[in-house]
């Protein structure tokens, strides 16, 4: 049956499929988006925590990323409160990682002979996560379409092996492929039977309008401060308990090694991380509401940094102890790096 969608550039969802298929075929675990508010795919535990420690992992996932201050009530054709990143983590990065990336562009219909591609220096840093890396912004005909980073540090800890991170900005790429001035005109879906098109605006505009209004006008400032304080307090309490539960000496000298090691294995580091993420999002909302003065800003960011870096530390320690005591490891897909 001849398809009515032939000769069209990829729709938004076809773009997502194509990239996911590509990386799946190169040995990546396809993970679902993390179901919590994050500002970037990097903040998902599938990146931020998995890059720690020695276990190789190749993983890819789409991550809706919320940045309350970037909302424009749906009126700016190029800025979004929530955009979608396709995040790929390759640990360690295969030698031909740049070639793989270029092949992934071919896989979404970009014929490099017909375009101008440049890798321009762009180093990435997330001070709140004690994380940084070096890399490039990938420019295609003057448009930044990807952030390509070699992670060097995370949670203030040196990484070994390092991870390669490829972050595709899906809206930008779709806009590029479909040659559009506005994100909202991106064809999200083209019905294969009828050829009927549904645009990004039809699918998402109301979200942009409402969440911009919420972030800028409605979000209740005292409540947000309360949220932040509550999440912080619980996260801190967990971090403190981690100190005793994950104490190597105590575990070694334990009279109930099975029980204590199981307790160490089950210690909810991931739960603590979610609480830290909640704090981060509350901070972003407060920031968008203009509720954080410059003097306060540094202090609040330091509080969140303590949580996030603290979680990274106990995560690394927990993983190390698990390996040391040869306890059953948590579901951590271990794959040979793709070649």
């Amino acid at each position: 049956m001849p398809s009515v969608v032939a000769n069209h550039p990829l729709t938004f969802q076809e773009l997502l499929f194509a990239l996911q298929r590509f990386w799946s075929e190169h040995g990546c675990v396809l993970q679902q988006p993390y179901d919590l508010e994050v500002g970037a795919g990097t903040m998902s535990p599938d990146t931020f925590l998995r890059v720690l420690g020695p276990e190789p992992i190749h993983i890819a996932y789409a991550q809706p990323s919320r940045r309350p201050a970037d909302g424009r009530y749906g009126e700016n054709p190029n800025r979004l409160f929530r955009h979608t990143q396709l995040q790929v983590i390759l640990k360690p990065p295969p030698e031909n990682v740049q070639d793989l990336y270029l092949q992934s562009l071919e896989a979404i219909g970009i014929d490099l002979a017909q375009h101008d591609i440049k890798f321009e220096e762009d180093n990435w840093e997330w001070p709140v996560g004690g994380a940084w890396g070096v890399g490039w912004q990938v420019m295609l005909d003057g448009q930044e379409i990807t952030q390509f980073t070699y992670f060097q540090q995370c949670g203030g800890m040196d990484l070994d092996p390092i991870s390669g991170e490829i972050t595709y900005g899906l809206e930008r790429i779709a806009q590029f492929l479909q040659d559009l001035d506005s994100i909202y005109d991106i064809v999200w879906l083209r019905d294969p039977a009828s050829g009927r098109e549904l645009t990004y605006g039809q699918v998402r505009l109301y979200e942009e309008q409402q969440f911009s209004a919420y972030s800028f006008d409605y979000a209740d400032i005292p409540s947000l401060w309360q949220h932040l304080n509550l999440y912080e307090a619980e996260c801190k309490a967990l971090l403190e308990r981690a100190g005793t539960t994950l104490d190597e000496k105590k575990l070694a000298a334990s009279e109930n090694p099975r029980g204590d090691r199981l307790a160490a294995l089950r210690f909810p580091t991931l739960g603590a991380y979610e609480l830290a993420l909640k704090c981060s999002h509350a901070f972003n909302l407060l920031d968008a509401r203009g509720a954080i003065s410059v003097t306060e800003r540094v202090g609040v960011m330091a509080r969140i940094r303590n949580l996030i870096v603290g979680v990274a530390r106990i995560y690394a320690e927990q993983q190390r102890l698990n390996r040391a005591f040869e306890a059953p490891t948590p579901a951590q897909p271990e794959l040979e790096p793709a070649r």
């Binding site: 017909q114 375009h115 101008d116 295609l140 005909d141 003057g142 448009q143 590029f176």
Partner: peptide, 14 residues
């Protein structure tokens, strides 16, 4: 062949 495509992309970004 490629100049119009590359031009269009750059013009859109600008």
């Amino acid at each position: 062949e490629n100049a119009p495509i590359i031009r269009q992309g750059n013009e859109r970004v600008l």
